[in-house]
């Protein structure tokens, strides 16, 4: 499969990239290309121009930012997976990065590209939603920070607008009393998640006192399972709370699963994730 023709420019800096994007409303940003190139080949995406930010090495980093860990948008999955700071302070992110695609994909794909693509079946967006991560977006008007609840706006849609660039993702440091789990069901090793569940649990002596739960592929964006979270806060067990996992969700029916099976998976995986995170 051959992409439709497009122009191509290498961005030399963030400012250069913003200028190139502003000059062409049909231009798209190319990072690792592991979401965009397949879409180009299928001609689902037919941009007039690609602005390649893949050489902006100053956007590839993981840094201590006080109560948060800051991850540069161009950090590749393999580097997120192996980063000692994330492994210590927010291991759900490094562990999940290691479950994206396969080794070849993780050698090229970037965390910024993954979240900015906004695929509802993608793992990292759901983890970011459970963590209440923050997203730093720059544009001609300067820099703004958007919370995960406002970042994912629809299927393949995010708060990153035309002429803007996602530059950084900030995740909270999880303390000793916070447990975590990300579980996904898929039929084959490298498949997208049929359903996934990210759980962050604050615990006290083996009891969950509060939880943040996000569902992958149960709607057009990662969805917080607020009924589950309310049940945990009210003292329910993981099994009792997980009954509500599919409340207010809109899973689709496709070749991987029916909507009914997805609702079942959401309940099963939520119970397991809460139990694992509580331990």
């Amino acid at each position: 499969m051959i992409p439709a023709a497009f122009d191509y420019e290498v961005a030399e800096s963030v400012e250069h990239a913003l200028g190139l994007l502003a000059a062409d409303p049909d231009a798209k940003v190319l990072a690792g290309g592991h979401s965009l190139v397949p879409a180009l080949k299928l001609r689902i995406a037919r941009p007039s121009k690609l602005v390649d930010i893949g050489r902006l090495s100053d956007l590839a980093y993981v840094r201590d930012a006080g109560s948060q860990v800051a991850i540069g948008a161009l950090t590749r999955h393999v580097d997120v997976q192996g980063d000692p700071l994330l492994q210590e302070h927010c291991p759900i992110v490094s562990m999940t990065a290691g479950k994206v695609g396969d080794p070849q994909v993780r050698h090229r794909g970037t965390i910024g590209g993954s979240v900015a693509h906004g695929d509802p079946a993608s793992d990292l967006p759901s983890v970011m939603r459970a963590l209440d991560a923050e997203f730093v977006i720059v544009g001609a008007g300067g820099e703004r920070t958007v919370g995960a609840g406002d970042f994912f706006t629809g299927v393949f849609q995010t708060a990153v607008g035309h002429g803007e660039l996602l530059t950084e993702i900030r995740v909270p440091k999880l303390g000793d009393t916070t447990g975590w789990s990300y579980l996904k069901y898929h039929r084959r090793a490298q498949d997208w998640a049929t359903v996934g569940v990210a759980a962050i649990v604050h615990r006290d002596n083996g009891t969950a006192t509060s939880a943040s739960v996000s569902l992958t592929n149960m709607g057009g964006t990662p969805l917080r399972a607020s009924a589950v979270e309310a049940a945990i806060a009210a003292g329910s067990s993981p099994a009792e709370a997980a009954v509500h996992a599919a409340d207010d969700t809109e899973p689709s029916t496709d070749t991987a699963a029916s909507a009914e099976f997805r609702r079942h998976l959401a309940r099963v995986l939520t119970e397991r994730a809460l139990t694992q995170a509580r331990a």
């Binding site: 191509y8 190319l30 290309g33 592991h34 190139v37 397949p38 080949k41 390649d52 893949g54 393999v78 080794p103 070849q104 994909v105 050698h107 090229r108």
Partner: peptide, 18 residues
């Protein structure tokens, strides 16, 4: 699959210009 700077990559999903 080929090696790009020593790491395995899928060459059907990379542009030559990259």
């Amino acid at each position: 699959t080929v090696l790009l700077d020593g790491q395995s990559v899928k060459s059907c999903t990379l542009l030559g210009v990259q």
